[in-house]
Simulated scan of single mutants.
Amino acid sequence: MAPRLLSCFAKGNDSSARNQNHANVTVDVSAEEQHRGGAVLVELFSSQGCKTSPEAELLVSRLGRGDFQLEMSVIVLAFHVDYWDYMGWKDPYGGSQWTVRQKAYVESLKLDTMFTPQIVVQGRTQCVGNEEEALLSSIVNAPRFPAPTFQATFQRPTPDCLQVSLSGALRTKADNDGVNVMVALYDSGLVTDCPRTDCPIK
């Protein structure tokens, strides 16, 4: 997988030329990208035990493919809940942790009940998962936050080794309501894909 990641940033089809020309590659998030605002998070809660969930999953799939040509980037996540399993069909993708996640949204959004399919946009608004107009409106009107700064450095010390170094930070930021919207801190990491035992990077 790691060699494919490097090839995303390379031009041409010749792997030997790619290895020589792109032995060390650094990718920075541009200042322009920072000022445009970050992506919008869309979360779908569905279940195989819900007869209207397939329509919502198709809608979210189209959203992920870019069928609606929105001006902002969208991150799509889908969670299968397990509270419909009592009806006789156990959803093999369902999990109690996703039910707990949806319940937390129900409480924070002050809703009366949990249901599927439900879509939560940017953790702030929700709609029925198969209502296209409501979904698109929620995305367009969602608050956006600048993308975190980060730097990725790709190095190939030998033809069989790939080293990826990442660094950046997500800083805590409070919006007008005083809600923390970014709370994780990411310092730096090193990922190495080395099939050889004699690789200099460990």
Score class of each variant (00 low, 15 high):
D82R: 06
A78W: 01
Y93K: 14
A78D: 03
T116G: 04
L111Y: 05
L63M: 06
G94R: 05
G94L: 05
E71Q: 13
Y93N: 14
Y93T: 07
I75T: 10
Y86M: 10
V74D: 09
D91G: 06
A78H: 07
G64V: 01
P117W: 03
L111F: 05
K103D: 01
Q102W: 06
V81W: 00
M72A: 14
M72F: 11
L109I: 10
E107D: 15
H80S: 11
D112N: 15
L70W: 09
F115E: 13
R65E: 13
R101V: 00
S73A: 14
I75M: 05
M114G: 02
V74N: 09
W84Y: 12
L63V: 07
D112P: 04
M87Y: 10
M72W: 08
E107W: 02
D91L: 06
E71D: 14
E107Q: 12
W89G: 13
G64F: 00
T113Y: 14
I75C: 02
S108M: 14
M114E: 08
L109V: 09
K90P: 04
G64W: 01
F79V: 00
I75Q: 10
L111W: 09
W84S: 09
M114L: 13
G88F: 12
Q97E: 14
Q69D: 10
F79Y: 15
Y86G: 13
G95V: 01
E71Y: 03
V100W: 00
K90S: 12
G64Q: 04
M114P: 02
W84G: 09
H80M: 04
D82P: 08
P92H: 06
G64M: 00
S96Q: 11
M114D: 01
Q97C: 04
Q102K: 06
S108Q: 15
L111R: 13
W98P: 01
T113F: 15
P117M: 04
V100Q: 07
G94T: 04
Y93S: 11
T116Y: 02
Y86T: 10
G94F: 03
D112I: 12
D67T: 05
D91Y: 07
H80F: 03
G95D: 11
P92C: 06
M87S: 07
S73R: 12
D112G: 15
A104V: 01
K90Q: 13
K103Y: 00
W84F: 14
G88I: 11
Q102Y: 07
S96A: 14
Y93R: 15
R101L: 10
D67S: 08
G64D: 03
H80C: 04
V100D: 04
D91A: 07
Q102H: 09
P117D: 07
L63H: 05
Y83L: 10
P92Q: 06
F68Q: 08
Y86Q: 11
W98I: 00
V81N: 01
W84K: 09
M114I: 08
S96L: 09
Y86L: 11
V76T: 14
G95L: 02
F79E: 02
Y93W: 11
T116S: 11
Y105C: 03
D91T: 07
K103R: 14
D91E: 08
L111N: 06
D82L: 08
M72Q: 15
H80I: 04
D91V: 08
K110T: 10
Y105H: 13
